[in-house]
């Protein structure tokens, strides 16, 4: 039997994962990226002669019901026409049973990479507001994301913010637990219970690995993590947005020590804390409420997440009107000096 070196094993693994697109309208071009749920390839849509992103998921489907549901989901997701949303064009199954879907090919950077170049807090917050716009739009049309995280946000070449992977986390969850059409949400509970079962050292890794499929630890709301399906709603996305906001605020900058100062900003921390409250009822009721608070913070106005003391109010008033206050103080100081000198 031929000995396979580590390099050969890796090569085999990669090549065996290449999707066989025969029988589809797509032609494989190159591998672009890989993540917890699957691998993204650049492909050419030969019918429409355009480049698309083709994501092959690490799940296998064999039953027709699920394939039909994937198509139905894809149709629903295609209705999300918003400049901040990358909708799914097509969903299908490879000959080996793996699920794939295609979407617009976005040239740009993932948010977690992109923000390394954004050194100003207000710029980062404005970026966050655009994510909120896209999510609020989807919520208004009854679509939840359920896997919001920096890796699912792309920033395009012209600074456009695009939220990816809509609704597919839900499909994956349902698939991984084999949930029925009648009870799609039950899947979350089953999958979570399955992942919480065994307890050896490998299992811990596996839970993390599986967690990537079921939601991303750190960005997944407690009710999702618990599998409390009755409570999973748009406030679960708000939790994830709060975690994204915290990531944007505390992710260290390479050149300045600003991140430490941001962590100490009580107002910003209060907004994050309210968005990521353990109990959904205590979070912002809508994404618009969250983005309104962030906007008010940017404008130096009071936010709903934090009750201000007089000192806070004064400090905020000073920050907002620094120049005017300094001018008035300078003017008053001059008047006092003039008064003193005129009396001599």
């Amino acid at each position: 039997m031929k000995f396979l070196s580590d390099k050969t094993v890796d090569r085999l693994r990669q090549n065996a994962n290449l999707p066989d697109l025969s029988g589809t309208r797509y032609q494989l071009l190159e591998r672009v990226a890989c993540g917890g749920m699957g691998t993204v390839y650049a492909a050419r849509d030969q019918t429409l002669d355009r480049r698309v992103a083709l994501k092959v998921l690490d799940v296998l489907i064999a039953d027709g019901d699920l394939a039909r549901r994937l198509n139905r989901e894809a149709r629903a997701l295609a209705l999300l026409e918003h400049p901040g949303i990358v909708p799914v064009h097509d969903v299908g199954t490879l000959s080996d049973g793996r699920v794939f879907y295609t979407m617009k090919f976005v040239e740009g950077q993932r948010l977690d990479k992109y923000i390394e170049t954004v050194t100003s807090l207000p710029d980062r917050l404005r970026l966050f507001l655009r994510i909120c716009d896209a999510v609020a739009f989807a919520h208004a049309r009854g679509v939840l994301h359920r896997d919001l995280k920096p890796a699912n946000v792309m920033v395009g070449a012209f600074g456009e913010v695009l939220v990816m992977d809509w609704g597919l986390a839900k499909i994956l969850r349902e698939q991984s637990s084999g949930a029925s059409d009648d009870d799609p949400e039950a899947a979350i509970l089953h999958a979570q219970q399955a992942s919480n079962g065994p307890a050896d050292s490998t299992q811990a890794t596996q839970v993390t690995g599986q967690g990537t499929v079921l939601g991303t630890p750190g960005y997944m709301s407690p009710e999702q993590a618990r599998g409390d399906i009755a409570q999973v709603d748009k406030r679960s996305d708000i939790f994830s947005l709060g975690a994204v906001l915290r990531f944007l605020c505390v992710n260290p900058l390479t050149h300045s020590g600003q991140s430490k100062a941001w962590r100490q900003d009580k107002t910003l921390e209060a907004i994050c804390a309210k968005a990521t409250e353990i109990h959904p009822i205590n979070r912002y009721a809508t994404v618009s409420d969250l983005s309104a608070d962030v906007s008010r913070y940017l404008d130096g106005l009071p936010v709903s997440a934090r009750k201000e003391t007089i000192f806070d109010k004064s400090a905020r008033f000073y920050r907002r009107h620094t120049i005017a206050i300094l001018l008035i103080v300078a003017y008053l100081a001059m008047r006092i000096l003039l008064l003193i000198f005129s009396h001599r």
Binding site: R13, Q14, A16, N17, G35, L60, G209, Q210, V213
Partner: peptide, 12 residues
């Protein structure tokens, strides 16, 4: 889980 570890680890 193992299939994901063996083949999915290219992705994971």
């Amino acid at each position: 889980r193992e299939a994901h570890a063996v083949f999915g680890s290219d992705a994971a």
